[in-house]
Structure formats: C-alpha cells, structure tokens
Design a binder for these strands. Structure first.
Length: 592
RNA sequence: GCACCCGUAGCUCAGCUGGAUAGAGCAUCUGCCUUCUAAGCAGACGGUCGUGGGUUCGACUCCCGCCGGGUGCACCA
C-alpha cells in the first residue's frame, strides 16, 4: 500500500527530471534486507543506462525533486544508485489503523477501468475414468487462480471442459453391451467403467475385429443412434456423480461444465468456414490448417524441422480422414464460444506442459481465423509440470498403479486425525474429525501449490501429506493462535480507532506490520503470473513473523498503548491469513 | 534429428522488470514449556547456483557452446 504511494511520487519526480522517460518500470519494492530500509527502488539504475546517464547523478537529481517526508525518513542513495526508503512508524501505524477500522485489507480491488473478464479452463477430467492425482494440479491451481482474481474484483468464469466425447466411447460402448456387470456398476460405477474399458482396449490389440466393432459403435453414437446415446448419457451422469463428490470435498465450484460434446453442433460449419477462408485444406484425406509462410520457420507453430534439417509442415488437424472432428476442432469452437458468449478479455488454460505445442498451434490458428477478436483477448496456457513416480518417470493413466484422488484425500484426513487425536485428546471426536478434515485437505492443496507450477512433481505420500515444516498446518496453527488472542482480548469492533492510538514499539511488531502491507502486492503477482506459490510463500512468511512476534511480545498482559497495537496486529494477521488461505482454497480452523 | 522443460545445501524445493552477503523445509546437532495453545521459538551445521565463454557498474536470472536428465514430434485427448 505505502509502496504504491512511494512509487507514484517517485514516478512524478522522475518525470520532472526526465520528461520523456517512460516510468512504467519505475517500481518500489520491499527492501531485500532490513538494513537497507523498508522499501527500495532499483529503477533509476536501469533508467540511467537507457538514457546513458550517470546513475548516481540521476538518483541525486530525482531525490532532490522527491518529497516523501510525510511517510519516510530522508531517502538514501546507496551503491551504484539504489534508493532506500525508511518508513516513519506513524505512517505505518496509520495504514494499520485504517485496516483495523475495516477500510481495507492491504489490497486494492479492480476498478471499472482495470476490470478483467477471465475465463479459466481447468480440471477437465475424462468421463468414465477415475480422477487420480494427475488431476490435482490443474484443479487446485485453477481454483486458486479463480479465487484470487475474484478477490481482486475481476469477473471470473470457471469452466470445466470435461472429456465427454471421443474415440474411447467406441470401446466403452462395446464393453457396456458385452462385458458390463450390473451389480458391479451399482457398487462402484467408475471402477466398472474402467474395468470394461481396459478389457476392451486389450481385446482390440488382440483381435482387429473388436477394434472394428468399436469403431462401428462410435460411428453409431456420432450419427445419433438412440441406444448408444442413452448409454453415453448414463456414463456421463455416473461420472458427474464422482466429479461432484471430489469437487465437493475440495470445495471447488464451476460456473459451467461445458464438455467437449457441447460443441458438436458447430464443428462442421467451423471446418467449412476455415476451408472457405483458405486457412484449411484437404491433406491425405484429413483436413488441416497449414503454415501461411508469413512467420520465420523457427517461430512458426505449424512448421518443424525434420531429421535432415529441412523445414516441413506440421499442420493442425481439424478433421480426421474418417470425417470426424478432433480436439483441435473442439478447442477452436470452444474458444470462439467463450469470446462470443462471455466477452472474455482473457482465457487461461490450466493444462499440463506436454500440451504446449498444441496450444501454440491453437492460438496461432485462432489469430489467423479471427484477427480482430484475437487482438482483444489474452490467451494464456498456464502450464504445469508432470507428476512423476518414485522412479522419476511420469506415470500415465494406463500404467495401472495411479493413486486415486479419493484415496489420497481419505489418507490425508486419516493421517491428520491421528495427529489431532494426539495433540488435542480433550476435544470431542466430531470436533477432532472436522479439524482433521481441514488440516488434511489443506496439506494436500498446500503441498501442490507450494512449488513453482512449472516444476515437475515427484509424487510421494509422505511429501504430499506432510504435516511439519512449511505446510498448511503451520499456517493454520498460527491463524488459530492469532484468532484466539483476539477473542480473549474482548476488544470491541475497532471502527472508531484513531490513527494515533496505534504505536509501534518492538521490532517484531514493526516487521510483522510491514509484511501485512505486502499482501496486495503478492496477490497481484500471484494472479498476474498464475503462480499461487508466491502467495503460499507470503503466507508462510507472515505466519513465521507472527509466531516470532507472539513469542516475543505478550499481548493481553501488555500495558497500553502496546496492548491495543498488539491486539490489532493479531486481528489483522488473522484476517490476512484467513483471506490468503481462502485464495488457496484452504480452510482456516477456529481451533486446533 | 528437431522443439520444449529441467540441473541451486545430504534430500525436496523457493529465488518477483538483471540488484546489494543465494533462501526455506526435511534430516543431523544444541538450547527454551509454573508465563496469551511447544502443531511453537532461538541457534549450529550445510553451496565452485551442471560446465565453459560472452553481455555490464552488477548474472542463479539474459545470450552462445558443451555435459547430464525428462517430455513431445499428423488423424488419442
């Protein structure tokens, strides 16, 4: 918050010295080290380089025009041209008082000018398959991004683009008709669907005749056969029951679940339009979009170098030689729908890294298809790393020993319950169980959001369900401690708190208070780059700073004015922790 | 062969427009509960940031080469 004030003052001062310079990159950030002060700006060194000026001289000139004496001590110029700002305690206390009065929680919401309409495409499991740990990253990343953007005041539309169409249904239909056991289906629908799918898949490899009949069933489905359509609808319904159960546990909600099949009615005309516009043409019986040659081969998504080093076409197929569409066609139709139906200004696809070439092609082809619309929308593939097995190899759905998501969540809650029972034997069993639920599910989500999304992820039960160190439990625990102090303080709502009533004394208070102010900065960074790990790290740090403060500064026994200051710090810390955890989809227990 | 990703402490990983002495957790070791919840706090140990060059006031970060690992490369999604 204060850094934004410093930033705008600094920009104004820069403009006075260098009227033509762009100040977009003039930023004020929290200081890297407390000994340099509270905030710093490195921008003048960059600016001096661009303008071929002496950086120290530029810094001196800018500081001469800079008036921040209401919030800072004298601005220092250090090293080759760093600006170091040291806050006046009263300025910091003033921001805290405003937050305590409920005027803000250290972040700013979007205005009508900055409002974005963001469609987030995430989770997207396949019908008739169990959700496994491979789905967790997309689901949790996407949900966190949606929650964060919503908190920042943007219009967010979440869409679960489930896999409810495609060649696997040929095999599923055969299996349903010839192998399916009704009692098994009633007991565990997804397991039975998975079983028949695997059986038919194996049979197809043995006998070409089975493969043929699977194709025939698929054609019947696609041409509207009533029996096959009914079975297909039933498989989707059974899957949706499973999805809803998992999403319910995870607290994940979607505004829409428009699966691949939803776009079927538009696919044929879409292909025709692309052909008519000259973008797509027939090739080896299929229809594909080829490079138009306007880009250098190296940056052209539709060209690739072959073994001999020659550049050859690597087109985007939009219709198979049997006349059926594929996922490129569906994805183009989906993109078109989202722009027309929802007026999206951004579409974020939270999909794994291996699909980068696909999205490169998809976005490229869309730009050629609808240049005007494409110019107005930001398309982002927020990719993430693979989940690896203990052997370091990515595991795939068919390898057989994938960990089912439901089992993972069960195990998380069970492990957490053991710890809760040990730490808090005084609580009722039902209360213990509820804490264990929040702690266990929190552990899973936190672990997944903790590292950079682009890193590969080595799956291990112990790692995923860790309850010590930098984990959700730690943050949740600090929240309950802060919350408890506020409850016990008996302090009324602080609506009438005056700025002057807050006096910062102890260094632990000062450090904690400064960190609270960085909440908004962190939310913005996490949302803009789709990196919830920034927020996770921020919350962990806030929790550690609170824990130190709690250890060093008695709150309820302190004399005024320290007592009020400290209760306010506890209250604000608890509020920021709760709000931050909420952005991660993690619940904050009142008691632990 | 080509493209993309990765290589940071014993292990798992952070590292924000290039910025000041590269940070956490786990593990190991040492202290701290008659004091608001010890699911806690304080401290120690631990690094040629794969490697060799380049760019510059400054490189884990940008560029080039090399080594090592992973993934993908037209009708599955």
């Amino acid at each position: 918050m204060l850094h934004l004030t410093l930033e705008s003052r600094l920009r104004a001062a820069v403009t006075l010295v260098l009227p033509d310079a762009s100040t977009a990159n003039v930023l004020v950030r929290p200081a890297a080290d407390a000994k340099f002060g509270d905030y710093q700006s490195n921008a003048l060194m960059t600016l001096a380089k661009e303008c071929k000026l002496n950086p120290r001289q530029l810094a001196t000139d800018v500081v001469a025009k800079l008036d921040v004496s209401d919030i800072c001590e004298k601005v220092e110029i250090a090293g080759p041209g760093f600006l170091n700002f040291r806050l006046k305690p009263d300025a910091l206390a003033g921001v805290l008082a405003a937050a305590a009065r409920g005027e803000h929680l250290f972040f700013a919401q979007a205005t009508t000018e900055t409002l974005r309409t963001v469609v987030i495409d995430f989770s997207s499991p396949n019908v008739a398959k169990p959700m496994h740990v491979g789905h967790i990253r997309s689901t949790i990343l996407g949900d966190s991004l949606a929650r964060t953007l919503r908190l920042l005041g943007h219009r967010v539309i979440t869409d679960n683009h489930i896999g409810d169409w495609g060649t696997q249904f040929g095999m599923l239909l055969i299996g349903w008709k010839t192998l399916m056991e009704r009692t098994a289906l009633d007991r565990d629908p997804i397991a039975e669907l998975e079983r028949i799918y695997k059986a038919v898949n194996a049979a197809c490899k043995e006998a070409p005749a089975t493969l043929e009949s699977a194709r025939a069933e698929l054609v019947k489905l696609q041409s509207g056969d009533a029996e096959n359509l009914a079975i297909w609808h039933e498989m989707i319904r059974l899957s949706q029951v499973q999805f809803d159960a998992i999403y319910g546990r995870l607290g994940v909600k979607f505004d829409h679940t428009l699966g691949e099949s939803f776009y079927n009615p538009w696919l044929k005309t879409l292909v025709e339009e692309l052909v008519a516009k000259g973008l797509a043409r027939e090739s080896e019986g299929a229809v594909a979009v080829f490079s138009d040659g306007t880009l250098p081969p190296k940056t052209d998504p539709l060209r690739v170098q072959n073994r001999e080093g020659e550049w050859v076409d690597d087109p985007l197929l939009i219709q198979k030689s049997d006349g059926a569409s594929n996922y490129a066609t569906t994805d183009l139709a989906t993109l078109d729908y989202r722009l027309k139906e929802w007026q999206a200004t951004e579409i974020v696809y939270v999909v794994g890294a291996p699909q980068q070439p696909h999205f490169n092609k998809l976005f490229h082809v869309f730009r050629r298809w609808q240049p005007e619309a494409a110019a107005k929308v930001k398309l982002l593939h927020a990719w993430f790393g693979s989940i690896l097995g203990d052997d370091g190899k990515p595991f795939k759905t068919r390898s057989g020993d994938t960990v089912k998501l439901a089992d993972l969540l069960d195990e998380a809650e069970e492990r957490a319950l053991k710890v809760v029972a040990e730490k808090r034997p005084d609580l009722d069993a039902a209360v213990q169980k509820e804490i264990a639920r929040k702690v266990g599910l929190g552990a899973v989500k936190y672990q997944d959001l903790l590292s950079n999304r682009q890193s590969d992820y080595v799956f291990s039960w112990d790692k995923m369900l860790a309850l010590t160190g930098n984990t959700a439990v730690y943050v949740q625990y600090q929240f309950t401690r802060a919350n408890k102090v506020v409850r016990d303080s008996g302090m009324e709502r602080q609506a009438s708190l005056a700025d002057g009533q807050l006096v910062l004394g102890d260094p632990a208070e000062f450090t904690l208070a400064k960190h609270l102010l960085n909440f908004g900065l962190t939310l913005d960074a996490a949302a803009d780059d789709c990196r919830p790990n920034f927020l996770v790290n921020y919350l962990y740090e806030l929790a550690t700073l609170y824990s130190r403060f709690y250890d060093q500064c008695p709150v309820l026994k302190a004399a005024e004015p320290a007592r009020t200051m400290r209760v306010v710090l506890c209250d604000l810390t608890a509020r920021v922790l709760r709000q931050g955890l909420d952005c991660l989809g993690i619940e904050a227990p009142e008691v632990m």
